[in-house]
Design a protein around this nucleic acid. Structure first.
Lengths: 171, 171
DNA sequence: CGGGGCTCATTACTCTTGCTAACGAAATCG
DNA sequence: CGATTTCGTTAGCAAGAGTAATGAGCCCCG
């Protein structure tokens, strides 16, 4: 293990770290969270859901990261590893590893960069493109099944939330 | 829920200086099932958000799993390790480790089970309770800050979504 | 020009976190 | 009382992501 770091005294009521308000703000300053447990609920639910998504990955043995990269390439066209890393908010070495795994499966291909010989361009192969298309409708059974069981209104809520979550995850 | 139509929405917007791709755009079929890319969008966003939540963990060195357990105990009262594992959808050995880490920090305590000497009851200590209270309003700066920047309507959407995501993650 | 400094990708290593397998102790059922 | 089941734990392993260091290549500035 490591240093236990015994929590000795813990300030019970931490004075709120209120950021200084900017003077010219006509709107309500909203210093308190208008949604009480949201932060905790969201954190717990997202963490657990991600864990289950990773675990329940059935047969399409693409990791979450690999799938995300494949989708990003399909949506935005070929990119350098650096651009992919920025997009997915991982460090370059992690992206190197993901690309390596995808390349081993012949789902992506590294092409030389036309102007800069340090860089590569990563692009989908035909097989990669086919997998994305296939997954677009079939994807991973577990989540698709769960989503199918929801009420239409709930799916709609999730659809709006997915866009917000995407922004959150990228900000 | 088999969807027979080829969802083929790949808008090529190549950021690279070399756009001579197969740059034709198939007429947008837009057959629009109930939720087109929801499964993929949600999966990617949840994965990325979980990754960032884990990474951005600032100083309160509680892992996602540890935080979840603390909150579960605060919400539902003391529980056996088995119950906690079921609740958080992890295997018992993982829960053993989480509880061990929390116990080292004196945030939880193991009590003997009154009727069954195989089992324990895990309960929050005063310090654990204080940390939960503190985190309820302070929590992790990163997510709280992001949430605060959202529109009220967006937070409301997330609040509804959080409940749905919780159910999803547990089903 | 040409060198210093930067950027890009990769390698090497570590850490965290979750899993399965196996095990000992205790309850329970026959 | 013995067999079986359940609970928590230990041991070992694998995946995923991060930091540090490295080498190749670009580019600006003197």
């Amino acid at each position: 293990m490591r240093n236990p770091d015994p929590v000795e005294k813990m300030d019970q009521q931490t004075p709120a770290p209120e950021p200084p308000e900017h003077a010219d703000r006509p709107a309500p300053p909203e210093p308190e969270p208008s949604t009480p447990g949201l932060e905790a609920d969201l954190r717990v639910a997202v963490g657990r859901l991600a864990r289950r998504l990773r675990a329940q990955r059935p047969d399409t043995s693409l990791s979450l990261g690999q799938g995300a990269v494949l989708f990003a390439l399909a949506r935005h066209g070929r990119m350098t590893p650096r651009a992919l890393a920025d997009h997915e908010k991982v460090q370059p070495p992690s992206m190197t590893r993901i690309i390596g795994a995808l390349e081993e499966r012949a789902l992506v291909r590294r092409e030389p960069h036309p102007q800069d010989r340090r860089q590569h361009l990563v692009d989908l192969t035909e097989q990669g493109r086919a997998l994305v298309r296939q997954d677009t409708r079939r994807r991973e059974a577990w989540l698709a099944q769960r989503l199918a069981e929801l009420e239409p209104g709930e799916r709609e809520t999730l659809r709006e939330a997915a866009e917000i979550l995407d922004r959150l995850s990228r900000s």
